[in-house]
Amino acid sequence: MKRDEVLHNLKAAYARLWVRIKGGNREPEWLAAEVVMPVITLSAYIFLYKMVNAPSEYAGFVIIGGTMMAFWSNVLWNMSAQFYWEKEIGNLEVYLVAPISRMAILLGMALGGFVNTALRASAVFIAGILIFQVPMVLHEPLTAFLIFFLTIGALYALGMMFASLFMLYGREAWHTANLLQEPIQFLSGTYFPTTSQVVPQLVQLLSSLIPLTFGLDGIRRVAILGQGITDVWLHIIALAIFILVLLPLARLALRYMENLGKKEGRLTLRWQ
């Protein structure tokens, strides 16, 4: 790729990022609700742990899970499903005729979405930790951040791959995004550790196919249980592999689905 082409695509990514950040924060009065309501939802699971007298670090597991879930929701609805919205609105055809890579558009969406979600998720995290007095034993903050950013990278790469599906399909894609909420929350162990011996091996096997599982477990080990990089290096390698595999796959899938859409005339089809 030539230098001009790279710059051109970076500008496109920045433009899409700017729209995402501007659009996401246009109504600051909603920010309070966007922080308070997730804490309320998480509280139910924390009270459930309290009901069965589980140790207090389990409340921390829930809060970290809920915080990371905000990013997964963002990937699903504001990145993957975004191509469905863009198609319905009429923007998708504009993206397709523009002399830029689809990956640049998705990169802009990903970065913009990350900034918006990070603002809300950190507020949810802090509020949850303070309200429920969760004990944190964080000895290696850099390790926690490394796992966090690798997880985000893997999740957004997965989102880019899903975006190709959403480019073609209508309500099927919408329902698929719905379907990827609770089942992913269960399999990735958003609210409980999947490494517990109570969790069947089949579930553990399936959960290892999801990057979020490694991210959640790694961050919990470092931030709540006080472990270090020597305990979570396998998590780091797994997340790096996810990124290295998913990004090229996303590029291939986008190209394939776009060509298929052109052949079948479905790229501008609305009200499916």
Binding site: Y45, L48, Y49, M51, V52, N53, A54, P193, S196, V198
Partner: peptide, 8 residues
């Protein structure tokens, strides 16, 4: 599973 793990 939250119930089971917490109870465990």
């Amino acid at each position: 599973f939250i119930f089971l793990i917490g109870s465990f």
